[in-house]
Design a protein around this nucleic acid. Structure first.
Lengths: 219, 219
DNA sequence: TAGGTCTATATTGTCGACAATCTGGCCGAT
DNA sequence: ATCGGCCAGATTGTCGACAATATAGACCTA
């Protein structure tokens, strides 16, 4: 997710990005312990920057920390997934509602163009869509809400966890095209400046996504 | 807000609590810069623990940090208040809805008892209610949602900001008794296991609170 | 005088060492 | 044999010093 396109300016930030990626992609196994000394040698930085990186991971809810004990990567449970998606549904539903009011016409135009690009990608059968494409779509709508708190909670707070579930459960399959249609309808509602419909469609879209993930988690 | 009743186990945690309180209560002025060296001498700890404390304050959205520049206390703007309460309305509305389903009968009973206690406090005319009492009320409902992500976002994330607005704008006045009635109706909806009504009443309650705060901010 | 560069200073970022605390295993008592 | 306390090792928390970066002001130039 280099959508924010922010280059790490400090060593702690770079270590944070590296660690986050390794956790999201499962290189560091869910539930495993994060030893400061170990990571310090692995990423070739001092323990202080590892501590700072871990501290930021805690903000993303990717790790949990106990005083004088240490940090562990969160483990993925069905209950956690349900809780996460309850919150996501509410927040992104609000984002879609606000976006229908607050997005500028040029931004909406860009959103439509993004959709057109995705359409070609889907037709060509690439799996790329579900990962970066989907994230990009949701990202723009969240930004379109123009609510900085909302943006922060979603992107600094829970989005990496959502990615973690998706990546580790392996996203692909028949939902790709139907998800695209759902995206299309959401964009149409936003283009029509219909906040209530935009929220409802977004909430359903996320519910479908949750159900899809749940079925994979239970299998 | 010692509802969580968690004693600081480490120096960084204690410094975090102290700093947070000073910021929320306005002892440290909104918008002011947080100098690590200065705070280090003031709280009599090393710069490392000050840095950790500031890092945690960033998670609460109480301070903003820029690399190689430093941290500043957030400043309170009308726009920020609106954004904050949009998010709060959505999240606490969800909390009330979930609480109506997930709270146990004993927990609901305790909630009713809390309300009875508040009634006496309101009658006696103490201002205590609006601060700790109100926070306690909302806290229990949030916990009653049984959704750990939601609980974390609200309590580790935005509740201290809400307190900051309330404390610094000076809460008291004629809304005390009407707010109590709103609380009473919310508890009734939860007792009746009526999720939709509970959510609607909570959302309205928070809207009223926002309007009340806004009028103070504009004056 | 306006604009830009350069330097001095202050502040933040990073490091390695030491202190405090937890964990797991050993030993003894009942 | 089981339970509890206790010791050793390892891990996290804290500290002060050093390095890297930004900021403000002086100085120079056009």
């Amino acid at each position: 997710m280099n959508l924010t396109a922010e280059a790490p300016v400090t060593a702690a930030e770079k270590t944070f990005f590296d660690l986050r990626q390794d956790i999201v992609e499962g290189v560091i196994v869910a539930g495993s312990k994060l030893s400061e000394a170990e990571l310090s040698t692995k990423y070739e930085v001092s323990r202080a920057v590892v501590r700072e990186a871990i501290s930021r991971l805690e903000t993303c809810h990717l790790v949990e920390r106990k005083a004088n004990v240490g940090a562990r990567v969160v483990d993925l449970t069905p209950e956690g997934l349900i809780e996460l998606y309850q919150v996501r549904e509410s927040l992104e539903g609000m984002a879609a509602r606000l976006a229908a009011t607050n997005m500028s016409e040029p931004e909406i135009e860009e959103l439509n163009q993004l959709l057109a690009t995705h359409f070609k990608t889907v037709q060509s059968g690439e799996t790329y869509y579900q990962e970066a494409g989907d994230v990009d779509f949701h990202y723009r709508i969240i930004l379109g809400s123009k609510n900085n708190h909302l943006i922060s909670i979603l992107y600094d707070g829970i989005y990496h966890l959502i990615r973690m579930y998706r990546v580790q459960l392996g996203m692909a399959g028949p939902r790709v095209t139907t998800a695209f249609d759902e995206h299309k309808n959401i964009v149409k509602a936003i283009s029509d400046r219909d906040p209530e419909l935009a929220e409802m469609l977004m909430r359903r879209h996320i519910q479908y996504t949750k159900n899809n993930l749940q079925s994979k988690l239970e299998s």
